[in-house]
Design a protein around this nucleic acid. Structure first.
Length: 802
RNA sequence: GGGGAUGUGGUGGAACUGGUAGACACGCUUGGCUUAGAACCAAGUGCCGCAAGGCGUGGGGGUUCGACUCCCUCCAUCCCUACCA
């Protein structure tokens, strides 16, 4: 017997997989299983979160293959993004060089972990062979009316004269220049995700996703029913339209508040210096989003009044820094008695507070619905009835209507960055034209040798296109690249078609695995893309990801591992020291996939220890063919029982729970329970038969998690005898073998454990009851007491209630 | 402010459908092996108590013969999001 040498076995097994092209998947008659893990951003090297994510995906893929599925598990790179530009500046390499080097290194790491990817379908979002299709999709979305241009706000660094991403704004200042960031309004491209708001919400119901993720998406989409209500502006023909979810509180309205960006506010600022100052202050605050939570609600009166549509009373119109222009109508009716924010605002500026709901309640503000008062002819109605009759009455006067409002907003996809996919548009006389399909891709120009990444807007040769056209210089949000890659993977090696027969065969993704932090944006964008692609006739089905598994974070000392906290652990050192199998086993053993995982050095040691023990038992042994014996010794029989019970439990945990930690615990327990007489060199054939079976079960059950050692030992031990590869099948358990002759009965008095007794399974309930009563401690406790009730749970518990 | 989660030994966690709380592992203690250490092997290890026994799943309350599990309430921690009318 040799010593367990992980790097040697792992190299030889990985070589075998490469030579066999083990993980190249092609359509066939088996049921398909498309297992996708969220592709990484090539930041340099893998972090522990990647290791965890990809191990989970690989475990499930390998298990599914053993269950007879045709499995497809691809991998690629979310390769555009800001870090490449930053690295380019500090390391003086081009973003493209930097990205490519990182990909090569990280790919090596993924392979050293033994992850079974079909590299023949690898894709990189930064390559023209990928993004030309992205540009085509944008064009098709445009033809469908899903794309438009409008002005939107960006963070502007006045010193560096550049647009900043949100994460580049620190405390309202540019991260590099330290200058106060300004808000600038520029033209940007938007995608009408809101066209699909209803469907994105409704089709969540049928998805096999974690409830918490579905809830988060529902809340993000934020459907709310309410009404538009028109308020006449005093001494004017104009109206202001507000949106409210509580028309029943309209008699409590004591002011209107408009957004600082509302046209009336902007108009007034031109003549009124105070208002103009106020708007400037609001702009400064917009930059420092993090502070906004604590920010005070501020307002300034416009001096204009509105007329209440039902009472005819005059209400002052204020400008409020808390009113958003792009939600609802940019105008709010202030009902201080029944809205927290309005209450604070009214208290601060001494505006009237009129209660109109639930007379007997005197704690304000109160958001509860209830019975109206102070509301004229609607007095006594419930909120629900009042809402419908008020809307009805307003509608009759053409002063309002009920409608549904979504919180979800359209998706701004323009980024003023170099390292991204160029937006395929050119302008003539400021008129945008989508680039013709035959001219795609619009390639991202290379940077001059040694130059930093300059935005396309400063690249004259790129801008000036033929026939006097000027190119769009913005690039796409990187979420664009990651929103449809799942559909491209099966066709990644096809340069002529975006989605070919392979995509049709493999889609939808059967299981998608990734971090919970993507629960909203990425998943929502992908779901939107799938629906839009469906409506373009390019994919089938309504949803891209049938099932979703969200993994928890990897923590160190109770906090998320991150570069900024300086508590990262480099997986590479552990792969080299202990081997991939140990790292994988540790990752899967330490906590279930959905929970956070606390990294602990010493526990890694424990995983390695188990693999060594496994090696020491099996290495050098050979499977011996023995006919199923008629009779077994008690220890061998017990081992066999345990082996079959374990196999059933393990299968259930793999299939229904993804709780690999309990899979491993059960395997360890089975391993620890192998009696010495079965392991000894002079074991009988009967004992060896049970040992054989147990080893087969353990290797098969462990293979998805620690594939190298399992396959290596399998090949030594059983492959030639059984004529079978380890990953080609899954053993069957026999429920008959799980039956036991006796069981342990727990005896309780009033629900407290007072004794235990081993009993034969063949006893009647009366016999069980009297056996229980015969236990000394039970007899003493029951002495002279009246038993009021006996509860018996079969082969588990008997409880005497006295 | 809104939303989502979590809380069990010294530690990571188990208990899947309301039925023996602490499986499995780490750590620790003791012993063996060793010149010594590492590794390995054996035994022990929730807390209090010499013991009998009592207590124990964030706190308090409730339902139940029986609660980590269900209900109410409070507290703490983490994540996401940012004034959504």
């Amino acid at each position: 017997m040799s010593e367990y040498n992980p790097s040697e076995i792992e190299n030889s097994i990985q070589k075998l997989w490469r030579e066999e092209k083990r993980f190249v998947s092609i359509p066939d008659d088996r049921e398909k299983f498309y297992c996708l893990s969220m592709f990484p951003y090539p930041s340099g090297k893998l972090h522990m979160g990647h290791v965890r994510n990809y191990t989970i995906g690989d475990v499930i893929s390998r298990y599914k293959k053993m269950q007879g599925f045709n499995v497809f598990q691809p991998m690629g790179w979310d390769a555009f993004g800001l870090p490449a530009e930053n690295a380019a500046i500090s390391n003086e390499v081009s973003p493209s060089e930097w990205t490519k080097e990182n990909i090569e290194y990280m790919k090596g790491q993924l392979n050293s972990l033994g992850l079974g990817y079909d590299w023949s379908k690898e894709l990189r979002t930064c390559e023209p062979s990928y993004y030309k299709w992205e540009q085509l999709l944008f064009k098709k979305f445009h033809e469908k009316g899903l794309v438009y241009k409008k002005k939107a706000l960006v963070n502007w660094d006045p010193v560096d004269e550049t647009v900043l991403a949100n994460e580049q704004v620190i405390d309202g200042k540019g991260w590099r220049s330290g200058a106060q960031v300004e808000i600038k309004e520029i033209d940007q491209w938007f995608i009408k995700i809101t066209d699909y708001a209803d469907e994105l919400l409704e089709s969540l119901d049928g998805l096999d996703w974690p409830e918490n993720v579905k809830t988060m998406q529902r809340n993000w989409i934020g459907r709310s029913e309410g009404a538009h209500i028109k308020f006449k502006v005093e001494n004017s023909e104009d109206h202001l339209t507000i949106f409210s979810t509580r028309p029943d509180t309209i008699y409590g309205a004591s002011f209107l508040a408009i957004s600082p960006q509302h046209e009336i506010a902007v108009g007034l600022s031109k003549e009124n210096i105070e208002i103009s100052d106020f708007l400037d202050r609001c702009k400064e605050m917009k930059a420092a989003e993090a502070d906004m939570a604590k920010a005070e609600k501020l307002g300034i009166p416009t001096g204009i009044n509105a007329i209440h549509p039902l009472t005819g009373k005059r209400l002052p119109i204020w400008i409020g820094n808390f009113v958003l222009l792009d939600y609802g109508t940019g105008v709010v009716m202030g009902v201080p008695a029944h809205d927290q924010r309005d209450f604070e605002f009214a208290s601060k500026y001494n505006l009237q507070i009129t209660q109109v709901i639930n007379k007997e309640n005197n704690e304000l503000p109160s958001m509860d619905k209830g019975i109206l008062f102070n509301s004229d002819k609607y007095d006594g109605l419930s909120s629900k009835d009042a809402i419908s009759s008020i809307i009805q009455d307003l509608k009759a006067e053409n002063l309002g209507e009920g409608l549904v409002q979504f919180r979800l907003r359209d998706w701004g996809v323009s980024r003023q960055r170099y390292w991204g996919c160029p937006i395929p548009v050119a302008y003539k006389n400021d008129e945008p034209f989508l680039i013709d399909e035959s001219e795609l891709p619009v390639k991202l120009p290379d940077l001059p040798e040694g130059a930093g990444p300059i935005p396309l807007s400063q690249n004259e040769t790129f801008i000036n296109s033929k026939d006097g056209f000027k190119r769009e210089t913005d690039t796409f949000d990187t979420f664009m690249g990651s929103s449809w890659y799942y559909a491209r993977f099966p066709s990644a090696d096809n340069d002529d078609e975006i989605f070919d027969e392979n995509s049709k065969y493999w889609l939808p993704v059967d299981l998608y695995i990734g971090g919970i932090e993507h629960a909203i944006l990425h998943l929502l964008y992908s779901r939107f893309f799938h629906k839009a692609l469906r409506d373009l006739g390019m994919v089938e089905g309504n949803e891209p990801f049938k099932k979703l598994l969200t993994q928890g974070m990897v923590l160190k000392d109770g906090a998320k591992m991150s570069k900024s906290k300086g508590n990262t652990v480099d997986p590479q050192a552990y792969i080299e020291k202990y081997g991939a199998d140990t790292v994988r086993l540790y990752m899967m053993f330490t906590s279930p996939p959905e929970q956070s995982l606390e990294w602990s050095e010493s526990s890694v040691e424990g995983s390695s220890r188990f693999l060594k023990k496994l090696w020491n038992l099996i290495s050098g042994r050979k499977y011996k063919i023995i006919n199923e014996p008629n009779a077994l010794s008690d220890p061998a029989k017990e081992l066999r029982r345990k082996a079959h019970i374990t196999l059933m439990k393990v299968k259930n945990d793999y299939d229904n729970r993804y709780s690999f930690n309990t899979v491993i615990a059960a395997i360890m327990e089975l391993f620890n329970s192998i009696p010495d007489q079965c392991k000894s060199s002079n074991a009988s054939d009967e004992d060896l038969f049970c040992l054989n079976e147990t080893i087969i079960f353990i290797l098969k059950a462990l293979f998805p998690i620690a594939p190298h050692i399992s396959e290596y030992l399998w090949n030594e031990y059983a492959k030639d005898v059984l004529q079978e590869d380890i990953d080609s099948s899954w053993p069957k358990f026999d429920e008959k073998l799980m039956e036991a002759d006796s069981f342990q009965l727990v005896v309780q008095i009033n629900g407290k454990v007072r004794g235990k007794i081993d009993l034969s399974v063949n006893l009647t309930q009366d016999e069980i009851e009297s056996s229980a009563k015969s236990i000394e401690n039970i007899r003493d406790n029951l002495e002279g007491k009246e038993i009021r009730k006996v509860i018996y749970i079969k082969e588990k518990i008997i409880n005497f209630v006295i």
